[in-house]
């Protein structure tokens, strides 16, 4: 059992929790993820590692409630336990294993869309701590859905964080692609690498823009997974005409090579099934709020 030390609501349907998970905390690096199972009957849900503290044996997760099992995760409070927390899974970001002096020569642009802001955070923090120049773009629907702006400012400095809202309700207005274009073409910024994490559709268009600008771009893929350890094959993707598995070959891939349309199509698979279960779950919650599991 894995103890939850704190739980907070960051924005609508978006939660942050600090969890005791020594096996993950001791080994995880930016770019990796973990799997949580709320209860014995729950699914294995792949989640982002948003932060970690090796001394305290803790990891921080940020997630949104989408399916029934993520609701079960969200219902947990500080002091409760998860049945399982397993990780780290996937490979660390590529710069972790590259010679640091090479990495330090580059200027990085990190782009976080929506919930993708959370996995961008440890990357921004790591790069900054290792003396690498880094700018961060946070894209979100509207001011109310913005998460982790202050954390990001604390990590890389106010001058290096650019927030944009789709509806213009806060700071810049428009999509992250417009900000990338502005920064490079109109504001004199130069980048050698981009890391883009967010909804598939955002990553697809982000890559289209960075390709035009000639900035090699890494994307982090989060397809459907079951075991997360290289067994089930559910997370298969087409990358450069080859079948790759996000859990053991990724989750980060060369964004210029990923077939996003194919990946988005596969995401649809359990939507109907999941949707049906969600309805059933919501109904049951309204029906009997006694706290029993009956």
């Amino acid at each position: 059992m894995y103890k939850i030390l704190s739980a907070e609501l960051l924005a609508e349907k978006t939660y942050r929790m600090v969890v005791e998970a020594p096996n993950v905390a001791h080994a995880c690096e930016p770019g990796q993820f973990l799997i949580v199972r709320a209860e014995e009957e729950s699914e294995r849900i792949a989640l982002t590692i948003c932060d970690y503290d090796r001394d305290k044996d803790t990891v921080t997760i940020v997630f949104q409630t989408i399916g029934e099992s993520s609701y079960k995760i969200a219902e947990k409070k500080a002091g409760d336990f998860f049945a399982d927390v397993v990780g780290p899974l996937g490979n660390p970001a590529e710069y972790i294993t590259e010679p640091l002096e090479e990495v330090q020569k580059r200027h990085y642009l990190l782009v976080g869309g929506g919930l993708g802001t959370a996995p961008v955070y440890p990357q921004a923090k790591w790069l900054k701590e290792h003396g690498v120049d880094v700018d961060v773009i946070i894209g979100t629907k509207t001011h109310d859905t913005l998460i982790m702006e202050q954390d990001m400012i604390d990590a890389v400095g106010e001058d290096h964080v650019f927030v944009t809202t789709d509806d213009g309700s806060y700071k810049r207005s428009g999509m992250v692609t417009a900000v990338i274009e502005d920064l490079v073409k109109n504001e004199g910024r130069h980048y050698d690498r981009c890391v883009s994490i967010g909804p598939m559709i955002m990553m697809k268009f982000c890559v289209k823009m960075t390709k035009e600008l000639g900035i090699p771009t890494i994307v982090s893929m989060n397809p459907i997974m079951v075991d997360g350890t290289g067994m089930c094959g559910a997370c298969r993707l087409i990358v450069g005409d080859e079948v790759k598995f996000a859990c053991v070959d990724g989750p980060e891939f060369d964004g210029f090579k990923v077939d996003f349309d194919q990946a988005m199509k596969r995401m649809k698979l359990y939507k109907t099934e999941e949707g049906r279960r969600m309805l059933k779950y919501e109904e049951s919650k309204q029906g009997k709020n006694c706290g029993c599991k009956g």
């Binding site: 009957e41 729950s42 699914e43 294995r44 399916g67 029934e68 099992s69 079960k72 079951v226 075991d227 067994m231 089930c232 094959g233 559910a234 298969r236 087409i238 194919q262 199509k265 596969r266 649809k268 698979l269 359990y270 099934e273 999941e274 279960r277």
Partner: peptide, 30 residues
């Protein structure tokens, strides 16, 4: 890559380990 193509590993893991065949478990299976 069509929707509804599974590896046996995925299908069986959902059914066996994750007990998708039982109503008291949350695992979806097609």
């Amino acid at each position: 890559q069509a929707l509804g193509v599974y590896s046996a590993n995925e299908y069986l893991t959902r059914a066996n380990l994750m007990k998708a065949y039982r109503d008291d478990y949350d695992t979806p299976i097609n």
